[in-house]
Each structure stands twice: as C-alpha cells, then as structure tokens.
Deep mutational scan, measured.
Amino acid sequence: MDVFMKGLSKAKEGVVAAAEKTKQGVAEAAGKTKEGVLYVGSKTKEGVVHGVATVAEKTKEQVTNVGGAVVTGVTAVAQKTVEGAGSIAAATGFVKKDQLGKNEEGAPQEGILEDMPVDPDNEAYEMPSEEGYQDYEPEA
C-alpha cells in the first residue's frame, strides 16, 4: 500500500510541476504579447503594419512553449490582441483601416495563427491545408 501511495504522490508532483510550467509559459506569452502591443503603439504610420505582424510573430513563438489545451486559448487571445492593436492603430490615425491585415508588401496577414497546427491532446499534428499553395516548377 505504501508503494501505491508513494507512486500516487510522485504522479501528483509531476502534474503540479507540469501545471506550473504551463502557467509560466502562458505568463511569458502574455508578456511578449504586451511587449508587441507597446511596440505597435510606438510606431509611426509606416511601421504600424509591420508592428502588428511582430506582435503576432512574438506571440506565436511563445505559444510553442505552452502545451496542451492552453495553446488553443493563448492563440485565440493573441489573435484578438493583434486585431485590437490594429483597431487602436486605425482609431489613433497611425494607419488607414484599409491597410490593416496586410503586410508591407500588401499581402493579407489573416491566418497567421489560424494555420498553425495545434492539437490540445498532444496526440497528432496535421499540416495546414494546401489550398493556398501553388506547385513550383523550376525553369529549365
């Protein structure tokens, strides 16, 4: 019985440690998101679009440190934060509304985080759909 109880105690310690790591990862992701939003706020009209992409990228980098179902929630929060940063930029006159959601080359930025393969159960990952990809044929 002692062996059984000791095993359960060790398992509990492992769960607590994993929860603490997840909590730490979420806190880091939130900190990076805040950094990115402050970065966007300090940019001029020309830099705002690039700044919004930076927020998304920093958040995406930190999301990889967070495991399990938390990833889905962090990704949703990050996307809403990026959308909010863009709205703030438009409201303050840093950028025109028609410039939001495009990178410096004018290509749409939507789907940055949505296409990231995420499995809350950590069982399997699927690649994003290939609808947006084109076949590449090298020139002879």
Rank of each mutant, 00 (worst) to 15 (best):
L113H: 10
V63F: 06
G7L: 15
A29G: 03
K60T: 05
E46L: 00
V66M: 10
N103A: 11
A11S: 01
V66R: 04
G86F: 09
E20F: 11
E139F: 10
V71T: 01
K80A: 05
Q62V: 05
Q109G: 02
P108G: 14
K10L: 01
K6E: 03
L100P: 01
A17G: 11
Q79G: 06
L38M: 09
V63L: 13
T22M: 15
G67Y: 15
E123V: 10
S129Y: 07
K60Q: 05
V37C: 12
V26N: 00
D115F: 05
E137R: 07
V82D: 03
V77Y: 15
G132Y: 15
S42T: 06
Q134V: 05
A56F: 13
M5C: 00
E105K: 08
D135H: 09
V3F: 13
E57P: 03
P138Y: 09
K12A: 08
V63Y: 10
P128F: 11
K80T: 04
L100A: 04
V66L: 10
Y136P: 14
Q99A: 12
K60N: 04
Q79M: 04
E61Q: 08
Y125S: 11
L38R: 11
G25R: 12
E28H: 00
G31M: 00
K34A: 11
L8M: 03
A27R: 14
M5Y: 03
D115R: 14
P108C: 04
K45R: 09
Q99N: 07
T81P: 02
T81C: 13
A69Q: 10
T72W: 04
T72Q: 02
V66S: 01
T33D: 00
E105G: 13
V77A: 13
E137L: 11
V15W: 14
G67M: 05
M116P: 09
T81N: 02
D2R: 04
Y133I: 09
G86K: 15
G31I: 09
N122S: 12
A27P: 00
A11Y: 12
T44G: 11
E114R: 10
D115Q: 11
A91H: 08
T92G: 10
E137I: 07
T44V: 05
T64G: 08
A30S: 01
D2S: 02
T75Q: 06
E61T: 06
A17M: 10
L113A: 15
A56P: 04
A56L: 02
M127N: 15
D119W: 10
A53C: 04
A17W: 15
G51I: 15
N65H: 11
T92P: 03
A124W: 10
A19I: 15
E123W: 01
E57R: 06
T22H: 03
Y133K: 03
I112Q: 12
E114S: 14
E139Y: 02
E57W: 09
A85S: 13
A17R: 09
N65E: 08
T75E: 05
E46C: 13
E131A: 09
G41W: 04
I88L: 09
V3E: 01
G51S: 09
Q24H: 12
S87A: 06
V118F: 06
G84I: 09
D2T: 08
G41D: 00
M127H: 13
T92V: 08
T64F: 06
D135Q: 15
K58R: 01
L8G: 00
Q79R: 01
G47T: 15
G86W: 08
E57T: 08
